[in-house]
């Protein structure tokens, strides 16, 4: 096996290790959250209001739609319908950006309802976790743009690269869903 001809196994392995690595970062955050929450007498802490569910729920729907389009990208690529793939990829990116805009709106809404970053542990967790997820969404966006660049018939290992980017995007989706449920719903 040479180094130039990237093999499927190498691409999949590397992608999975990166996802595991990032998962460990988020797992650490959630472990901390579990400890804060279980040792607090009441949650949210005294005097702190829960964040209104509308923007987080809308964000979840938008991100879910983005993931759906991402799935369509790989379906099209498998069938070698690359122009369709590009269309779906554009929609994936669009809805991903939409999610990020909604996150910005969410932070604004939190601020105007009096929940600032320095407003204690509940605010700390809500802001920090969504910021860190947002940072990884930027990485995901870069990955999608990279996919846009290589979504051509000449690209070697195109399907493997497509599923790798797709898996990373799903990973971000899953992390968001866990955040949505644990930070906003319950």
């Amino acid at each position: 096996m040479s180094t130039r001809g990237r093999s499927e196994l190498q691409i999949n392995l590397a992608t999975n290790i990166v996802i595991i690595s990032m998962a460990m970062l988020f797992a650490t955050l959630f472990m901390g959250y579990a400890i804060y929450r279980s040792s607090a007498p009441v949650w949210p802490p005294m005097g702190v209001q829960r964040v209104s569910l509308f923007l987080p729920s809308l964000s979840t729907v938008v991100l879910f739609i983005s993931s759906f389009f991402c799935y369509q990208v790989s379906v099209s690529t498998k069938k070698n319908e690359l122009s369709k793939g590009h269309k779906y990829l554009n929609l994936t990116i669009l809805f991903g950006l939409g999610f990020m805009v909604l996150q910005g709106l969410l932070w604004n809404q939190m601020k105007s309802s009096g929940l600032f970053v320095s407003s204690g542990i509940f605010a700390s967790i809500t802001y920090a976790f969504t910021w860190i997820h947002f940072a990884h969404m930027i990485a995901g966006l870069v990955a999608l743009l990279y996919l846009k660049k290589i979504l051509r018939s000449e690209t070697k290992n195109l399907m493997t690269k497509t599923t790798s980017v797709e898996n990373f995007w799903y990973f971000l989706e899953i992390v968001w869903i866990i955040m949505f449920i644990t930070l906003f719903v319950f």
């Binding site: 400890i35 802490p45 005294m46 970053v117 320095s118 204690g120 542990i121 605010a123």
Partner: peptide
């Protein structure tokens, strides 16, 4: 984040305002 943005993940006791960090 604690040092730059004022979060309270690791601040406790007298220094934490709403709910305690650890």
């Amino acid at each position: 984040l604690d040092r730059v943005f004022g979060t309270t993940f690791f601040l406790a006791g007298a220094s934490a305002t709403s709910g305690s960090g650890d």
